[in-house]
Write a protein that binds this DNA or RNA. Sequence first.
DNA 1: ACCGGCTGTTACTTGCGGTAACCGTACTGT
DNA 2: ACAGTACGGTTACCGCAAGTAACAGCCGGT
Lengths: 214, 214
Amino acid sequence: MDTTQRTDRQRSADRRRRELLEAADRVVLRDGPQASMNAIAAEAGITKPILYRHFGDKGGLYAALAQRHTDALLDSLRAALDAPADRRERVESTLDTYLAAIEARPQVYRFLMHPAEGGQGSDQGFDVGKHSAPLLRRMGEELAQVIEERLDLGPGSRQLARVWGHGIVGMMHAAGDWWLGERPCSRSELVRGLTELLWGGLAAVDDKTDSPGF
Amino acid sequence: MDTTQRTDRQRSADRRRRELLEAADRVVLRDGPQASMNAIAAEAGITKPILYRHFGDKGGLYAALAQRHTDALLDSLRAALDAPADRRERVESTLDTYLAAIEARPQVYRFLMHPAEGGQGSDQGFDVGKHSAPLLRRMGEELAQVIEERLDLGPGSRQLARVWGHGIVGMMHAAGDWWLGERPCSRSELVRGLTELLWGGLAAVDDKTDSPGF
DNA sequence: ACCGGCTGTTACTTGCGGTAACCGTACTGT
DNA sequence: ACAGTACGGTTACCGCAAGTAACAGCCGGT
């Protein structure tokens, strides 16, 4: 019965949802991750309860918001990762893509990295585990997958690929965060530095002359 | 005039401060980073305004609390970093020290990584930059210093050392976070995997046989 | 005996997340 | 034409946590 109607409703709801997300996006981009539900509702031209009807709670809204950006970022990263170039070039290009993204929209970036936090109202759980930003985890898993299906890591490759994936993503993230805060050098210098590190820089360089040989 | 008296007061205040910090520590360890000022005050056997007199605001308390743990952790990391062993062993031992620490006290770890967050009451600034946990920054700078004074990086060594320092710390952090959440392998396996990565794993391994040559 | 400074309290304000209860309107079936 | 109802919307409220007066006891100094 009346599936068309339901579809209509659904579509309208989806459109509304998208509008609300856009509004939320604008506010978060302006006020940072501590944007209040009131502010978001006001920006969307409506009031709080509607937001709650659509997204459940703040976490829900933030999750939805985060997923949009995360998806977008992951898409561009995948593009860089899959480009037809040699491995080192792909690594550099991926790093650069990520850094360009966080440079272009630092507010969004910050929001993605510190999403929910402790809701004071209801839950008390505080589960250890699942703390860090979902974006980091997703990037790590994504990279792990690429690593595992492209490189020949020998036995235990699955675990090793994941370790490397999360490790590399973390390296990129922390270095990017630091760089964004202090701007100590150009983006390309940073990219080169990190690539060099990944390419075995630590093992390759010599000790300083006045140190004991290794 | 009466410097002795002032010193007495100072000492008493310091002692009180330490007591308060210990109480706060207990609560944070129990309730996580969303511990309320009321709860902390109650644990210390006093009431809120005293906390505010001592620490200014929640951020102040959390900063003080964080510094204690950060100092402690940095001390043990320094020990591992300065041990009389070859470079690779030192790297492994440092990674292991860090991971052992976060494994032993995940609540503290989580607290250190997500300290202040948005105070809703007063400030509105939201400065881009200085987001990430101070602990990460301090570890990064510390490691950068060690790298720079021990390794011969050629020209531009200062910048490169910092890039590497923050990058390595980020790698350690993200991998540790992921590992703590999923426990996909033993600590020593993780350490080996990360070390291998740092030792040029990415450059050393081959492509899978069905991939195009690099 | 009085005063200044310290520790501590109660009681308040503000602002946020979240919810309950109510209102209008447009679209439905009979 | 009219009752019913489902939905977008609102106001007004609760609970809670950060932060802040304003007041109360306890000292040592003059």
